[in-house]
C-alpha cells in the first residue's frame, strides 16, 4: 500500500507490518490529515498485534501531523491493540525531542531512535 501526499510518501509493508513515512509532512489542517489516519487504520486492521511506524526518514512533521499520530496512538491504547513501535532517527532533531511524547500517551509504545 502506497500513498503520496504533499512532500511525503507513505509505504505499508504487509510482510512485516511496518509503515514507513518519509519526506516532509506539513499539511494545513486536521482534515487534510484524515488520509494519513485512514492509511494507519487500514494498516492496523491488517496487523492486529504489532505495528511499526518508521519515521526515520521523515524530516519534518508539523503539529497537526504530531496530533494525528498522537490520536492514532490514543485510539490504539484504548483497545491495547495493535502494540505500536515507533522508529526515529538520532539525526533528526524533532525525533529526539518529541517522539518520546508518544510514550506519555501510552506507556506500551516502544520507541527506537537509531
Amino acid at each position: 500500500m502506497e500513498l503520496q501526499i504533499g512532500d511525503s510518501q507513505l509505504h505499508y509493508d504487509t510482510t512485516n507490518c511496518q509503515v514507513h513515512i518519509a519526506g516532509s509532512m506539513r499539511l494545513p489542517n486536521m482534515q487534510e490529515y484524515d488520509a494519513i489516519t485512514q492509511f494507519l487504520k487500514s494498516a492496523a486492521a491488517q496487523c492486529k498485534e504489532h505495528l511499526t511506524i518508521d519515521l526515520s526518514k521523515l524530516n519534518f512533521l508539523n503539529s497537526s501531523g504530531i496530533t494525528t499520530l498522537s490520536l492514532f496512538i490514543i485510539h490504539a491504547s484504548k483497545t491495547g491493540k495493535p502494540q505500536i513501535k515507533v522508529v526515529g532517527s538520532q539525526d533528526i532533531p524533532w525525533h529526539t525531542k518529541s517522539l518520546s511524547n508518544f510514550k506519555k500517551l501510552w506507556k506500551e509504545v516502544a520507541l527506537e531512535i537509531k
Binding site: F60, I92, P93, W94
Partner: peptide, 9 residues
C-alpha cells in the same frame, strides 16, 4: 531542522 520547525509552527 530546528529553526525550520520553530518558524513553521
Amino acid at each position: 531542522n530546528i529553526i525550520s520547525t520553530v518558524f513553521n509552527e
